[in-house]
Design a protein around this nucleic acid. Sequence first.
DNA 1: ACAAAAGTGTTAAGAATACACCCATGT
DNA 2: ACATGGGTGTATTCTTAACACTTTTGT
Lengths: 245, 245
Amino acid sequence: MAHALRYEQCFVAIARCVYNKNMKAYVPPIVTVDAVIFQIVNNRLSVLLIERANDPFKGAMALPGGYSAAGETTKECLDRVTAKKAGLSINSLKLIEQLYTFDTVARDPRGHAVSIAYMGCGKDIVPIESKTTQSPGFYPVDNLPALAYDHAKIIKYAHDRLSSKITYTNAVFSLLDQFFTLTQLQQTYEAIFGRELDKRNFRKKFLSLGLIRATNEYQKDGAHRPARLYTFNSQKLESLARSFD
Amino acid sequence: MAHALRYEQCFVAIARCVYNKNMKAYVPPIVTVDAVIFQIVNNRLSVLLIERANDPFKGAMALPGGYSAAGETTKECLDRVTAKKAGLSINSLKLIEQLYTFDTVARDPRGHAVSIAYMGCGKDIVPIESKTTQSPGFYPVDNLPALAYDHAKIIKYAHDRLSSKITYTNAVFSLLDQFFTLTQLQQTYEAIFGRELDKRNFRKKFLSLGLIRATNEYQKDGAHRPARLYTFNSQKLESLARSFD
DNA sequence: ACAAAAGTGTTAAGAATACACCCATGT
DNA sequence: ACATGGGTGTATTCTTAACACTTTTGT
């Protein structure tokens, strides 16, 4: 009975969605979420992938994602599915934002799916494996394996968004430790842009933006002069006075 | 029987979405689309609104929008609902792009709805009224009536997107006629930014971008010197070499 | 002493800003 | 002739881009 009631509620929900073109009843599209989670690994921009446990695309690498249910926001849904499949909570990220909603009818072989993609960034993210995780791991974006669905396109979209985001906001903070050297900062930009920047110009310009401040700490890191550590004035996303690069 | 079969298919669709947290069955969220359609009216940025025919928010002004069904892309859905409720096809727009997906659980009083918002721009758009249209009209964004749902927030989001879009792309073309004067171009920027620009600097900079070319035509428009007409080299969205303003 | 990365300044070219008058037309 | 909006240039400041050597440390 309780079940019957719920199914009736489903019917009500569907009935609202029904659209009578050509007198045919339509079902609502399935809503899924997908996460593009970046971090810097060995000075390379890398993205979190899992290995699909089931068909379709069983065995292929894919972004962590899953079905959304009514009553949870898509962000809550995202947290649930990344925790389950990739062993990490989006709360451990320093930045998470909605990217784009991908909706080609033929996208998912099982039927029409609307996928709301999010982009997240963090530092020193380590997936915690469990019975439900599917071999999560980070893969450099410039050398990705074959991917399920249209996930290669989604990753490219996220990478493009991140590239432009770091030019007009302080979004790099999300890929760095709280304290970092100017070289680490520059290498993060270079990893995302995929090209080298001039050291003197980079430092001059970045310091002039007033986003970061020097600390009195130094990082000793081998047989060379120690590097001064800097920190962001704000760990929240802010727009730059003038855009970068 | 045919109906029973379809409902079964619905169940299958829902069953895929069911998520058993706390052993409760969940229904998928409802997917809707909303259109933020801009045009310049009397040198003011204006947005297309309809008057809601039904509850909730019956009688209030709202963005045209409606339920998405499986088997159509969200853009196809958008075209269908704007044609029905506002009497215009999105094909009559010079620009249409997906904005953001709004998904707060409490957004729609009827239940959890995920709304995929699109932004469109055009010139000389005239809604064609029919039995299904709901008093469509354009309202200046700086003087909007009370709006249903969270549509005020969606319009602000679209306006912000448009403001930044015209600084790093040639997107203004979508709000202008094929041939236009530099004053019209400047007024379009001013209407979107909500502030005045210097005439000489504006012209110098815009012409230096190489996006438009002068024609040999002039627009005579009253008791003053006729204005030269210009045209965009491309009517497709392109990025600017350096950003504007 | 040497290897390795950190740190630092100048010059030249280009872009942004501020600002005021003459031009062509219709009445 | 006058009212109206169209059209134009210069000087200053700021920003960008190109470019090479010295400093500090560990071995």
